[in-house]
């Protein structure tokens, strides 16, 4: 420290030195990404918009319990289903709502999901969920969660509406590597 202090007092050129730093940056490559035209590539683990698969869901409510802010609302009822000749009671999902406007995208619901592959996940890379009205447009029922009505999918991400994504929670196929 004292060395630098000494040097600064001897050489009054530090202002020019500062100018040279900014001057050099003048010719450097720019960091700007022209967003709507060029989209930054989210990483594979990026916690983006929700994906949900009703057929994988076993209605265990784990995600709703794991959610720190209780934005997953699940309602279900039992139905008699005939499986291999035996009558079984099966939970049927009535309602699976996520209040995305309050979501903090922590991913705990995905971690809590016991199914394999998970029925609720966040790594879909799509982040363009902006809406003009938040109460209606950012409240996702199970139908909207699967159709992604109102979400602009990231290029390359298969939305749940265009067929499920068995075994591939990232939803993408062959994303460009950064």
């Amino acid at each position: 420290m004292s060395f630098w202090g000494f040097l600064a007092s001897v050489l009054p050129l530090e202002l020019a030195q500062g100018l040279s730093v900014t001057g050099r940056f003048f010719f450097k490559r720019k960091a700007t990404i022209q967003y709507p035209e060029v989209k930054p590539v989210p990483k594979d683990r990026f916690r983006g918009m929700f994906g949900f698969s009703e057929e994988r869901c076993i209605v265990c409510h784990s995600c709703a319990k794991a959610c720190p802010i209780d934005i997953i609302h699940i309602a279900d009822h039992f139905e008699e289903v005939e499986v291999e000749g035996k009558k079984r009671k099966k939970k049927v999902l009535d309602r699976y709502d996520i209040d995305v406007k309050r979501c903090m995208f922590c991913g705990l619901c995905e971690e809590a999901c016991p199914t394999e592959p998970v029925a609720i996940w966040l790594t879909t890379k799509s982040y363009e969920t902006a809406a003009y009205e938040r109460n209606e447009r950012l409240y996702f029922t199970k139908e909207r969660l699967q159709s992604w009505d109102g979400v602009r999918a990231y290029p390359g991400v298969v939305t749940p509406a265009e067929g499920q994504m068995p075994g591939d929670p990232t939803g993408g196929s062959g994303e460009p590597e950064r």
């Binding site: 209780d70 609302h73 309602a75 309602r95 709502d97 209040d99 309050r102 109460n135 209606e136 409240y139």
Partner: peptide, 15 residues
Amino acid sequence: VYPPGGGPVAGGEGE
């Protein structure tokens, strides 16, 4: 504009 209770599902919030 925004009645208390959160989501738009009438009477269906927070159970």
